[in-house]
Amino acid sequence: MASPLQSLAFEGGGNEALVLRDFRLARRAGVRGPGASDLLTSHGLPADIAPNRISDQSDRGLVMALSQREFWLLHPDAAASSQQPDSAALAAGAWPLYCQHSHAWLMLSGEPKAAMMAKLCGVDLGDGAFPLGQVAQTQMAHVSVVIAHHDYQNEAVFSLFVDQSLAEYAAGALIDAMSEFNQSGI
């Protein structure tokens, strides 16, 4: 059986209402601990982002706050770095999170994305309850997921982070749910 991940689009999506893209090879790293916000500040990044918010720093990528002590830095257009964060280089009280190793990154775009996600996830992801800049740490098709609502190439998208070992399962569940919206003639 072909992996559902192999069928994902890499370019924006034709006539399809919903497009799922594979960002597993894009750069991402995280930091956690009581010194995490100080570390961000020392790199000139904002550390006053509320938990479960994502902030666009234009060419410096996206900063996602998962708690008051945990931040992820996301670079959708940069290749995954072979250099992993070095804990000795980090400030005291901040530990590196190897997000590239731990979490697969998928990106969902298209107008009915919130309606489609309602099939898989108990949290309301409609614009009213889940505006741009919001992050939800929840479950999708019974597995843990981080969903971030942000702009990418002038389009509002959902970035989805699932455990690497569950990427194939999650992509399969998403593609299955998308099929209802991507049938031609609707």
């Binding site: 479960n52 108990g122 949290v123 939800a136 929840t138 479950q139």
Partner: peptide, 10 residues
Amino acid sequence: PLNGPRNISE
């Protein structure tokens, strides 16, 4: 307290 109202299965 961090993430708001969620299903008990989470």
